[in-house]
Nucleic acid binder design. Sequence first.
DNA 1: GCCAACGTTGGC
DNA 2: GCCAACGTTGGC
Length: 159
Amino acid sequence: MNHWLLKSEPDVFSYYHLEAAPGRRTVWDGVRNYQARNILRDEIQVADLVFFYHSSCKEPAIVGVCRVTRTGLADPSQFDPASDYFDAKSDPTNPRWITIEVEALRALKHPITLKDMRKDSALQEMALLNRSRLSVQPIRAEEWSHILHLAADDGHFHE
DNA sequence: GCCAACGTTGGC
DNA sequence: GCCAACGTTGGC
């Protein structure tokens, strides 16, 4: 089982939108970068775990944990002329943009901010810090558990 | 709102 | 296939 990070702008679609969605699930539409598409199409598998990252906002941070529930889906927005993500060149019999479905598992008690990650010597290799524009990224197993540990055990308990 | 990084497009 | 122009991302 592998671990990933998905970025979303919270003004457009936040982790909390996902928790409120039917079945706490959504098809991850709108990715229009080939490198990110290739990861979605070829690498991510059902039952993989995903960090939900909020980008382009006041406090960029990992805010929740999701699970992959379906793979190999044609992104429906590519065929919708009304969508911002419409792609007239995508052939319905051979769709260009393939994506996954994810399900919200839980919000982190304490979001792990980009600032936190930059300061943490265990996280310096993260793609988020080095290849920051890629919207679908792999997370190493050690990074995954390190971040979860920070999120639960940093003295900021809210329950 | 600025701008650096970087992906995409298209002329040659 | 190079590369300049252009567009987008996303932190600040």
